[in-house]
Simulated assay, not measured.
Amino acid sequence: MGVGFVSGRGLHGVVGLTLLPFFLQFLGLGLGGVLGQGLCGSALGVSEVEAVRYGLVSEYYLYGQLFLALLALKVTYALVLISLRFMYPEKDPPFAPLVWRVGVGLSGVFLALFLLTRTLPLPFATPLGPALLSPAPLDPLSLLMVLPEPALLWLYLRYRP
C-alpha cells in the first residue's frame, strides 16, 4: 500500500467523514421534532413547485436546497475517491493534488456556508424586493452534521499529496 492521499490509510476516514452529514440528514426526517430538521430543513420531500403552490416556502427553503446540493456533491466526491482507490491501488493518481483541492474546497464551502447562514442575516427575494431575514435557526441536528468538518479538514491537511 502507498502512503498517498488516495491510496493511503487516511482515505477511509476522509470518505467516512465526507459521507456522515448526508446520512445524518435522514435523522431529520424521522426525528425532526427532537433534533430539528438539519441543514436541508424543509427542502426535503417537497418540490419547489409544490412548495410555492401550497405556501410552504420559508426563507430557509432555498438555503436548504443549497445545502442539499452541497451534500450531493460531497457524496459524489466520496464515491470518486473510492473509485480512484480501485483504479490506483498502489499509488496516487497523477491528478491527486486536484482531487485533494476539490475535497478541501467542498469541506471549506460547507463549513463557511453553515457559519454564514447561522450568524448573519440571510438575503431573500420577496415580492416587494430584497430583504434581510434572521439567521437560520441552530438545531442539534445541524450542529451534528457540521461537527465532522473540522476533523475532515485536519485529515486533508495531514494526507496532503
Rank of each mutant, 00 (worst) to 15 (best):
L31C: 12
S47H: 07
M1I: 08
L144M: 11
F124N: 07
L141G: 02
L39A: 04
L153E: 00
V3T: 09
T119C: 15
L56D: 05
L144T: 00
L132G: 10
V99A: 14
P135S: 07
E149Y: 00
P148W: 01
C40F: 02
V14L: 14
F86A: 13
C40H: 02
F22S: 08
G45V: 11
T126P: 14
L56Q: 08
E149W: 00
F114N: 03
K74L: 14
A96V: 08
V15T: 09
L143E: 00
A96K: 03
L113K: 00
P130Q: 14
L155P: 04
L106M: 05
P148H: 04
L144R: 02
L128K: 15
L113M: 07
A78D: 13
W100A: 04
A125L: 15
G8F: 05
D92V: 07
G103Q: 06
T18I: 07
L35Y: 08
S107I: 00
G33Q: 14
L128C: 12
S107M: 06
Y54P: 08
L35G: 03
R53K: 11
G2D: 06
A125N: 11
H12N: 06
H12V: 14
P94A: 04
I82K: 14
F95P: 12
S107P: 03
R160K: 06
L98P: 06
G45K: 04
M145Q: 15
P137Y: 02
R118N: 11
G30C: 06
G36D: 04
P137E: 03
D139T: 00
K74E: 14
V15A: 15
P127T: 11
Y63H: 09
A51R: 04
L106F: 07
L62S: 10
L147S: 03
S7F: 01
I82R: 14
G32P: 12
H12T: 12
G33K: 09
G28L: 06
E149N: 01
T18C: 10
L68S: 14
F5C: 08
G16Y: 05
W154D: 00
W100C: 04
V75I: 11
L20T: 05
S142I: 00
G32Q: 05
P123N: 10
G64P: 09
G41A: 04
R9V: 11
V49N: 13
L84H: 11
F124K: 03
L115P: 10
L70R: 04
P161V: 00
T117L: 13
V3Y: 14
S58H: 04
E50N: 10
V102S: 10
G13P: 08
G32R: 06
F95M: 10
L128S: 15
V46R: 11
K91W: 12
A125C: 09
V6Y: 13
L116A: 15
R9H: 05
L155H: 02
E90T: 09
Y159L: 03
I82V: 15
L144D: 02
V52D: 13
T126R: 13
G105I: 05
R160S: 02
A112T: 13
Y60W: 10
S83D: 14
V146H: 03
L68R: 10
Y60C: 02
G36A: 01
P94K: 00
R158H: 08
R118W: 10
S107E: 07
L17S: 02
G103E: 06
